[in-house]
Amino acid sequence: MPPENPVNPVPPAGPPSPAGASPPAPAGTGSKLPVPPATAAARPAAAGAEDLSRRKFLGLISWSGLGWAAFSAASGVGSIATGRFMFPNVLYELPATVKVGPPDDYPSDDVYEKYKDSNGVWIVRDAGQITALITVCTHLGCTPNWLPNEGKIKCPCHGSGFRRNGINFEGPAPRPLERAKIVLLEDGNMMVDKARKFQYEKGEWNDPDSFIPVTA
């Protein structure tokens, strides 16, 4: 009850009896709930104005303003923190370049897994070329497995299969595996650089940087 108006008390609104005491009366007899017309007529305009006095209104505004300010501040801090999250201090990425030894280390046509764990490349010798295939499935990016007995590279996620040279031939992968740049250094070692990629479907596998010719 607002203290400003003690002489003219308004009958308390709301349910006439405690909850659960009696089931609600069927529709038609429940019309007693609104304020009786006599009371309402006696205080025509005052009722509305009193329900929301200036003081109350300003109080409401300042509280909700405070609430919104707090909410915006929290969201702001939250988004800044999220933004910071996008620039991690440490990036666990495999090194992009690696020396993979001389071509003689890869004597026969095969898929060599030596640099799979450390650098994410297979060194493949096939049809007179040494290439570096990136171990990322071109379907959705799982790491496929080289199955030596079957002579194919097979992805455990949705079953894409690639031939030894990286060409896709089964399952959903839409394009061949990507090659990384591979060059022969002056010291006779080969160097793989994953920063440069070669895609078969764009005709990039003819690029001399994408393979090292060897005598088959």
Partner: peptide
């Protein structure tokens, strides 16, 4: 988890 080894089947 190891990015170089995807469980099979995954």
């Amino acid at each position: 988890a190891n990015p170089a080894r995807t469980p099979n089947p995954s």
